[in-house]
């Protein structure tokens, strides 16, 4: 093992067109841990995941996964790297033209020469892990949101990845599914010996399962620590976020021109 940290992000900047999305991010994600990245919608969390997965290239700085700088890999090495990553997309992103079984088997069929009988055993094993072995014949459009998320999870762990990334795994789920997914994330991380990054804005659910939290706002990390440390904080933004207060350091209004100006009250006088 080359280092303690599976993912190391140093001085990362990312600019979309001319709009800065991420500024000076430094982050270490130790092996075997579940780390949450929290923040409001649109603060650059998903962009960060895409940078780790190599789907975007940083404008400045570096993302290292297992000691390799992701954006400097050539296509083949990047694809080899991705085979050891699993990603759960926000709404599952199941292939709608394939059954649950084929979805989970997809990566095994694409990347390995395993015989179909072995693939079947493996797929059922993965589906059993998320409690959906009985649903392997269904098509994705007949699954509920929570079930689809669990199938997607089974698909993401199909090749036993070393790094799992979850993009808003709790978005749009009922409370029962929420607990189920939360437990699965924690449980699978331990069972696979993997490292997990959970991007979310669901404070209560993720605080129960993660080891460490980074808080992001406006493309910067503004706070970090274990769940207990963060809960104890009562400083401005984090306090507002953790306790879900409407107004505080994060203003309710999107920045804009003066309201009176928009209503042409002032120009009328001019």
């Amino acid at each position: 093992m080359p280092s303690e940290n599976l993912v190391e992000i140093s001085d990362l900047n990312f600019t979309y067109d001319v709009r800065p999305v991420l500024q000076g991010i430094n982050m270490q994600i130790p092996r075997g841990k579940v780390v949450a990245i929290m923040g409001l919608s649109g603060c650059g969390k998903t962009t960060l995941l895409r940078l780790i997965g190599g789907q975007l290239k940083p404008s400045q700085g570096a993302v290292k996964v297992a000691g390799q700088s992701v954006h400097e890999l050539n296509r083949e090495d990047l694809y080899n790297m991705r085979r050891r990553m699993g990603m759960l997309f926000q709404f599952g992103a199941l292939f709608t033209d394939m059954s649950v079984f084929d979805n989970v088997a997809f990566q095994m069929r694409e990347h390995t020469d395993l015989p179909e009988s072995l693939i079947r055993d493996l797929v059922l094993l993965k589906l059993e892990a998320v409690g959906l072995r009985g649903a392997h014949d269904l098509m994705p459009n007949s699954l509920s949101g929570g079930m689809a998320r669990r199938v997607a999870l089974a698909r993401a762990i199909a090749l036993d990845p070393m790094l799992m990334m979850y993009d808003e795994p709790f978005a749009g789920l009922d409370t029962i599914s929420l607990g189920v997914i939360g437990n699965l994330i924690r449980h699978l991380n331990n069972a696979l010996g993997a490292t997990s990054i959970v991007v979310t804005h669901d404070v209560q659910e993720s605080m129960k399962i993660v080891d460490y939290i980074y808080f992001m706002s406006g493309g910067q990390i503004i706070a970090q620590g274990s769940p207990d440390e963060l809960r104890a904080l009562d400083s401005g933004f984090v306090h507002q976020f953790v306790h879900g207060e409407i107004d505080g350091p994060m203003p309710f209004h999107y920045p804009g021109t003066k309201y009176a100006e928009d209503l042409a009250l002032e120009t009328a006088h001019a």
């Binding site: 085979r83 997309f89 992103a93 990347h111």
Partner: peptide, 22 residues
Amino acid sequence: GLMKATEQISAMEMMAVDPIAR
């Protein structure tokens, strides 16, 4: 277009499968 909108294309890329080829 729908595969793209529902991130299926992205998911495929992350699974190290080239969506252009597949």
